[in-house]
Structures are given as C-alpha cells and as structure tokens.
Write a protein that binds this DNA or RNA. Structure first.
Lengths: 155, 155
DNA sequence: GTAGGTGCAAACCGTTTGCACACAC
DNA sequence: GTGTGTGCAAACGGTTTGCACCTAC
C-alpha cells in the first residue's frame, strides 16, 4: 500500500493509513461523515479536512468513485471488478444494489459508437421501495405528465 | 398551463409564467443560474429564490427531473416521453445524450424483481470525449487498479 | 533539508428559509 | 379576505482553502 502510493508520488502517514484502512473496512456508499466518525473512534486527533482530503485522494488514485444520489450527500464507492447499479428509495433513502453486467456491456458499446472513453458508469433507479410503497408513507403528488402536456404547455 | 397548475393547487403569476416559459425554451440540462439569467433578460425584477422555487416546482409537478453530474451544479432535464442517458466528459464537461430504450427496459425489469416502484432512471457514462482524448489534454494519473490491489490493500 | 501532509479556522458557494409585503383567486 | 407567491437578506451545510506547523523520505 505504501509502495502503491509512493509510485503515485504520495507519502504514507499514520493518519493516511488509518483513513484508508477505515474506508475499506466500512461497506459501500461511505460518506465523509461516516468515515470521519470511524476514524475518530480510533484517533480523536485526526482533523476533518484530513479525512476529506484523503477521501479525495482515494478517488484520485482510482480506488473509489463518487456516488451522488441527489440528496446533497456525496458517498464513495470502492472500485471493484463488479460494477453495480443502485436502487435509491426517495422516501426512506435506503440504497440497494443490483448487478448490471448486461447493461454495462450495452453502455460500453454505446460509448464506443460515440468514440467516447468511458471511465465509469452510473446506473441509478430512483423510486420507492417495497416498504415505503406498501406503508403508503409516500406522498406522491406528481402529475400524470405526458409529452403532450409539455408540448401544450410550451405554447 | 394555468389550468394544469390549478389542478395541483398552485396559482399562476407573471413571474411563474416567465420562469416556466424560459425553462422550456432553454434546451436540456438547464442550471438555476442559466435559467435565472434568461429570466432576468426579460424581467430584472425577478428574484433568485423565485426562480429557484419555481424550478423545484417544475420538478414537483413532474415536468422535469434533477440531473447531477457530480460537478456541484444541479441541472434540470425536461421530462419527455423518450428517456436518455448522458455521456459526460470529465475534462471539458461537455454533455452528450444517447438513447436508452433497451436499457430502460432491462432496468424496469430489475426494479420489478426488487418490488421497487421506479420513478426515474439515471444512466450516465463518465469519461473522456473524442476531442479531449485526441488532444491528449487529459491528465489521467489514475492507478491501474484491480480488485486484487484493493484486496491486498485491505490487509 | 524539502516537499508533501496535517489541523484548525475561516472562506466559499450552491441551496434553503424567515419575513414582510404583494397579489391571484 | 385569505392563502399562496415574491423579493430580499440572512442562514445553512457540505466542500474547499490559507496558513503555520509537522513529518516522511
């Protein structure tokens, strides 16, 4: 690990090691605050910006990517061989994963058609999970909007 | 349009009409600032928060959805019959669209398997476009990371 | 010794809100 | 008249940065 960072031109420090280790111990979709809390459990002296900067570094060296669910909190996903999509419940904020092998294949093909060099794929389904839907907790006051409505409205 | 809003319990005002109209005149991926500027071209008296609140309203009534490319700026896409994905160049920030009919079919199926009620699908490919790739403008200092590296690093 | 790393506090910036006034209905 | 909408300015919260000190190499 130390070697790995060295080859990228970064030094290893106790804080950095602790932060990296904590990050990989936490599951998926880690937020800065979660990581900060976990790090502070072990070493209260580590600063918030250090955690932040190292989380960015983890992304920079390609070990994680940012995940943005639109709720204002940036999460970080470990990069693994297996890409996955997210099911995001807009009510309870729960996050489930699903595999996207087939889809990624299609997307890679699409990117190729555009001569685009893909670095990563984001596949998210926003909606409501079984529980929230069943509990009728959801306040869906959406319009039944169609393309016709929109066109009509543009007049 | 006025009718449409009335049925949702909202009033029509000159500002609101101007904002809605401007939004639909602008293309895709409209940011608050872009919309604000466009609105102010016509009426300097409209406030920023009014634009903001109405943009939220447009989403609330189902005429647009938020698009988050991870660059800190929230954009808004008109809802149309045809869903589309985004090719986002991490270098020049250019955004291209591609059709995703086939993929959405797969995603809807997936959601069904999870008994999940999808509201919208986000499909994004981040990477580098032809131009940026060709110009070699891109400063890619990413690691060649594999799942093995990650595992190894967790020790 | 030197360049990069850390911790703190303050700045930043997109987003949200409280409030007083205005206006659609 | 009433309740929603507006405009302003200030608050908020996640993110970033300047700076002085520290430490890996």
């Amino acid at each position: 690990m130390k070697e790995f960072l060295r080859t990228k031109g970064f030094k290893m420090t106790p804080q950095r090691e602790l932060i990296f280790r904590s990050f990989f111990e936490l599951g998926e979709h880690v937020s800065v605050d979660e990581l900060y809390d976990k790090v502070r459990e072990i070493d209260k002296s580590v600063g918030y910006s250090t955690v932040w900067r190292n989380l960015k570094l983890i992304c920079k060296v390609g070990l994680a990517i940012e995940v943005n669910l639109g709720d204002g909190i940036t999460r970080y996903d470990r990069v693994t061989k297996i890409p996955h999509g997210h099911l995001y419940c807009m009510n309870c904020k729960k996050l489930e994963e699903f595999s996207v092998e087939q889809i990624v294949g299609l997307l890679a093909e699409t990117a190729g058609n555009y001569k685009f060099a893909p670095e990563n794929f984001k596949i998210e389904i926003q909606g409501y999970c079984v529980d929230c839907k069943a509990d009728n907790k959801v306040n869906i006051d959406k319009a039944s909007v169609t393309a016709e409505n929109v066109t009509e409205m543009k007049q």
